[in-house]
Design a protein around this nucleic acid. Structure first.
Length: 328
DNA sequence: AAGACGTGGGT
DNA sequence: TACCCAAGTCT
């Protein structure tokens, strides 16, 4: 592919690169790794404040490795995809135990939570290795530049495009381009530094590449969450370590199912997950259900580390307590 | 290898 | 409103 286009893009990036908090010089492997994991399927706008809190609380991988699981999971609460946080903990401890991050893509790839993309990104950005980090932005930009419909094929084609010695910068250049100009919808091709090298632009249909993903329908499920109150406290539990919201703080409850349970809820919270929609029925009960748990002061619910599902459900229940007439 | 896995913002 | 999508990984 065209080295001219690659150089134009790098030049454009040097002038227009966004000033993001994980882009310090020299690049810190810890911050590079942490930001890359946070950014998996998550926007820069969402990550930025959370990243700053994280590195203020745990400035080094050793500090993170020494923290308790619940503290880290609580700090991750609301960010979603909690397997990332569980892998983050395991990864930090493995890295601390071996005395630092592996400096190669292959070594990084062995760590929990580092897949093909993240291992390449950290190797290239933090260690200067010529590893091609192919993410959805790179796939989309390449799909348009080369007019390739298939995302994965476009990503493969992009590998030969990375300039030797500049893989980290080039990956960031492609990602910034993908988020600012070469957006999924309504790309701003007129302002693109490489539009003269773009086949999709020449064809007059940049939005036709890559081909759209096939969408599948989201089933509906129901859940019961027990609302056990005592003075100014609520009974919370910790969910099982694996699976959906694994290891996170939660309201106690039953297994979720396909049929609407016949209960008398104080509030119903509808929550959209990636692969299904949930109606969580918050049902008052006199005593906490059997099992482990703790009384959480209502005034300190913000420090409970609740994922958004339960934070919202609890807000709805507290609102219903205050305004019974508005209850569903 | 297709499905599980969260959430918030943009349109 | 409803849908699309985001710096993916794991099983």
């Amino acid at each position: 592919m065209d080295a001219t286009a690659a150089n134009l893009l790098l030049e454009h990036h040097r002038r227009h690169a966004r000033d993001l908090p994980w882009r310090m010089t020299p690049r810190d492997p810890y911050r590079t790794w942490l930001s890359e994991v946070m950014l998996q399927q998550t926007t820069v706008a969402t990550v930025t404040p959370r990243f700053l809190r994280f590195v203020e609380r745990w400035p080094t991988v050793e500090a993170l490795a020494a923290a308790a699981d619940e503290e880290i999971l609580g700090e991750w609460a609301g960010l979603g995809y909690y397997a990332r946080a569980r892998n983050l903990i395991a990864c930090a401890r493995a890295v601390a135990a071996r005395g630092g991050f592996p400096a190669t893509e292959a070594g990084l790839r062995e760590l929990p939570g580092l897949g093909a993309y993240t291992a390449a990104a950290v190797a290239a950005i933090a260690f200067g290795e010529d590893a091609a980090a192919i993410d959805t932005n790179v796939e989309r930009v390449a799909a348009r530049v080369f007019a390739i419909g298939d995302r994965k094929a476009a990503g493969e084609a992009a590998k030969g495009w990375f300039p030797p010695g500049h893989h980290g910068d080039f990956a960031e250049a492609l990602m910034d381009l993908g988020s600012s100009l070469c957006r999924p919808k309504v790309p701003n091709c007129a302002a693109c530094p490489i539009n003269a090298h773009c086949r999709a632009w020449a064809l007059g249909c940049p939005e036709a590449f890559p081909h759209p993903k096939v969408k599948k329908e989201r089933p509906h499920r129901f859940g019961v969450a027990w609302w056990a109150r005592r003075r100014d406290e609520v009974w919370l539990v910790r969910r099982p370590a694996r699976g959906l919201l694994g290891g996170m703080a939660a309201l106690p409850g039953e297994e979720w199912c396909e049929e609407r349970p016949s209960v008398n809820p104080i509030a119903i919270h509808r929550h959209g997950f990636t692969h299904f929609t949930l109606d969580l029925m918050v049902v008052p009960c006199a005593e906490p259900p059997p099992g482990e748990g703790w009384w959480q002061p209502v005034a300190a619910l913000g420090q409970a580390g609740l994922p958004t599902l339960y934070r919202r459900a609890i807000e709805a229940a507290l609102g219903a307590e205050r305004e019974p007439r508005l209850a569903a």
